[in-house]
Design a protein around this nucleic acid. Sequence first.
DNA 1: GCAAAATCGATAGTATTACTATTATATTTG
DNA 2: CAAATATAATAGTAATACTATCGATTTTGC
Lengths: 230, 230
Amino acid sequence: MINLLSNLKIAVPDKIYIKDPESSDLGKRIIEHSILLIDEIGFDSFTFKKLGVKIGSNESSIYRYFESKHKLLLYLTSWYWAWIEYQMVFATHNVPDSKEQLFKAVEVVTRTIKEDVTYTHINEIILNRIIINEYSKSYLTKEVDSENKEGYFVVYKRLIKRLSEIINKVNSDYKFPSSLASTIVEGALHQHFLKVHFSSITDCGKEVTPTQFFINLTQNVLNTQTNGPK
Amino acid sequence: MINLLSNLKIAVPDKIYIKDPESSDLGKRIIEHSILLIDEIGFDSFTFKKLGVKIGSNESSIYRYFESKHKLLLYLTSWYWAWIEYQMVFATHNVPDSKEQLFKAVEVVTRTIKEDVTYTHINEIILNRIIINEYSKSYLTKEVDSENKEGYFVVYKRLIKRLSEIINKVNSDYKFPSSLASTIVEGALHQHFLKVHFSSITDCGKEVTPTQFFINLTQNVLNTQTNGPK
DNA sequence: GCAAAATCGATAGTATTACTATTATATTTG
DNA sequence: CAAATATAATAGTAATACTATCGATTTTGC
């Protein structure tokens, strides 16, 4: 998968950027170091000026790629979800049993990213941390509806839909496949956050993983106790 | 309950404010109109200057109550969760059956707020909308850990703990009561958001409520199909 | 009832942010 | 090699998120 992935380009809705950052060296440095800098100082304190200093470039040059830091965040999050989607499709492909498919899919969207798959300039471990800490800021805005119309959230929505379809295959009588899917994906990010910052209100930690919690939850919700994961 | 509540003061950790907004007329106007203004223009665009104009007062006067708009948000969210906590305790009190207790508790934390309980200057319907749209911004910051130590999130954590204790009473074999509780509370906010802005990835809408989804989920997760809610 | 304290409004000031615009230089490409 | 493109550098702007100071007014404690 690693080799396969490094030959594929993750597709991000092209209206998000002014100039494709994958098309130049500067663009790639913008992506690479924006991930590092946002992780370091947080999205709220992140500015194009600071990023310019880090990459030895100028603020105004970065504005030629993204019209705002918000758009850059949308780019990073779309890239991340497309990457997760790819893994989900890959992991469930050719798996005959739909329950097995579901468990694999849930695992992909809830697990801790532990390896930098060396997508050259993108560090996925750090990007995952950014998603946990900053993703909701990308849609909790007054502009959600218009940006949604522009297609800035298609990748995320497509991922949730895929998951809900797998849920539906496992138990077509279940009434809330979309809500369950969106709860698992959003809930996993939340549990990862709680693990680090509010450990008293989660069971996830050293011994229990968000994946275990959500696999168990999914099994019970769909009443499909037989054939647990692995 | 309405009458009872209007004689009680919702307790918010006092380090959040510089001067208690409940202690003066100006303070109450700050709270009342900050809720309206944040709902109107969003927390990101909200400033003390704009609020000053709305209440016919001065920016500098508002700074005597809250050291930053972030602290004001912490105040509003703490107030909200304390209010929900109160309702949860009230709704489950004297209910003998623990399953019944759980269903009532889940209902309290997931339902749509439909009535302004006229806590004089606080409009709970609008405040609920603010919680849905802005709550995560209060903890998704680089300062979470230090602010958590200062006790700014105690009310929220206490609410989750209460819910997890009720879950535990219903099924003491269940391994993840805290994660389930935090997932329900956070997940309900998320479903309410999706309902309005990303309806394609939720089943909640005109016919299905987040409460129905989460009651069903809770029942299934705890394997307690008998004795559904009401 | 008066002095002290607290409250509030008004004004000014600061560093930073989130941009836009322009021009000059360097690099790529046809 | 000229034209097009990309980048760097500089300047400028309105707004933000405050802090500080100074009177004027109101409240309160004795």
